[in-house]
C-alpha cells in the first residue's frame, strides 16, 4: 500500500493540525514541509475558523492550488522553492486549475459534514483526501473528504451503506448551499480508500486470469461505487471488458475477455 505524501488537516490550532498530519503521514517534523493555509480565527459567521495546514513529505511536491495570490480564505503562504515542481512525483493527478469556488466548496463541504455528524452525536475531524484513481475526465472534479474520530463504525454500516447515505445527504446539503453542481466523496477513517486499494488489486489479478484463461469471471456483488471502481480500473485494459448484471444488492461485475482484434 502506498503511503500518502501530502495531507491537509483542519484543527483548532496550527500545532494540533501539524501533529495530526504527522500522525497521518507517519512522518516526523523534519521530514516534511508545512504550509499554513488558514490561521484559526473567530469569524462572524458563527463558526470559528479552524487552522488548516498542508503537510507534504519533502521531495514530493504539494498540490498546486492554481489560484492567484492574494485571494481570501485559504490563501496559501508562499511555498518553499523545493515544492515548485508539479505533483507527478507523488503519482497523483494534479488538480485542474479551478477558480476559487473549488476552495470555498471544499470548506463548505467540510463544515457541513462536521456539523451534520455533530448533530448526530459524533465528534469528528474532517480532512481532505487525495484521489487514488485518475479522475474521470467526463465527470466534474470531486471534493474528497475523510472523517476521522473514535468509534465511527456506525457511520460506515454494512457494505458502506450508511456511508453512502450520509454522502448523499452531504452532497444535497452542499449543492443546495452552493447552487452549482459539485460532487463530494465522503470517507470514514479511510474505509473507502482501503476498499478501493484492495479492489484495484483484485480487478488487476482477475483481469490477468481472464486474459490467460479466456474465460469470464464474475466478482462478488458490490455496491455501485465499488463496481464503478472496477469498471474504471479496467476501462483501458486491452485484454478484458467489464459489465454489471443483476439487480439491487446482487448486482455484480463480470470481467470477460475482449473480443479478438479489438485490442486498445
Amino acid at each position: 500500500m502506498e503511503r500518502r505524501n501530502s495531507v491537509e488537516i483542519q484543527a483548532i490550532s496550527v500545532d494540533e493540525a501539524v501533529r495530526l498530519a504527522l500522525e497521518q503521514l507517519g512522518r516526523t517534523r523534519d521530514e516534511v514541509e508545512i504550509e499554513v493555509l488558514a490561521e484559526p480565527s473567530n469569524s462572524a459567521g458563527g463558526y470559528d475558523e479552524e487552522a488548516l495546514v498542508r503537510v507534504t513529505v519533502r521531495g514530493f511536491a504539494s498540490q498546486p492550488t492554481g489560484r492567484p495570490s492574494g485571494g481570501r480564505g485559504f490563501a496559501p503562504r508562499p511555498r518553499p522553492a523545493a515544492s515548485a515542481p508539479p505533483a507527478h512525483l507523488s503519482g497523483l493527478p494534479v488538480e485542474p486549475d479551478e477558480p476559487e469556488e473549488a476552495d470555498e466548496a471544499t470548506a463548505l463541504a467540510m463544515t457541513i459534514t462536521r456539523d451534520l455528524l455533530a448533530t448526530m452525536g459524533f465528534t469528528v475531524r474532517v480532512i481532505r483526501q487525495r484521489a487514488t484513481l485518475e479522475p474521470d475526465p467526463e465527470e466534474p472534479p470531486t471534493i474528497m473528504l475523510d472523517v476521522l474520530g473514535d468509534d465511527l463504525g456506525m457511520l460506515i454500516g454494512r457494505r458502506g451503506e450508511h456511508l453512502a447515505q450520509l454522502q448523499y445527504l452531504v452532497n444535497l446539503l452542499v449543492n443546495r448551499r452552493l447552487g452549482q453542481w459539485t460532487r463530494v466523496s465522503l470517507d470514514v477513517e479511510g474505509y473507502k480508500r482501503r476498499r478501493e486499494e484492495s479492489l484495484i488489486g483484485l480487478a488487476e489479478r482477475v483481469a490477468k486470469q481472464v486474459a490467460r484463461s479466456g474465460r469470464a469471471i464474475q466478482l462478488e456483488p458490490m455496491p455501485p461505487n465499488e463496481r464503478r471502481i472496477v469498471h474504471l480500473i479496467l476501462r483501458d485494459d486491452p485484454n478484458v471488458t467489464t459489465e454489471s448484471s443483476g439487480e439491487g444488492d446482487l448486482r455484480r461485475v463480470a470481467i470477460a475477455p475482449r473480443a479478438a482484434g479489438r485490442g486498445a
Binding site: 451534520l116 448526530m120 456506525m154 457511520l155 454500516g157 451503506e161 450508511h162 447515505q165 450520509l166 448523499y168 445527504l169 444535497l172
Partner: peptide, 8 residues
C-alpha cells in the same frame, strides 16, 4: 437517507 442519519 434522512432516516439512515436519524437511525444512526
Amino acid at each position: 437517507a434522512m432516516r439512515t442519519a436519524v437511525g444512526i
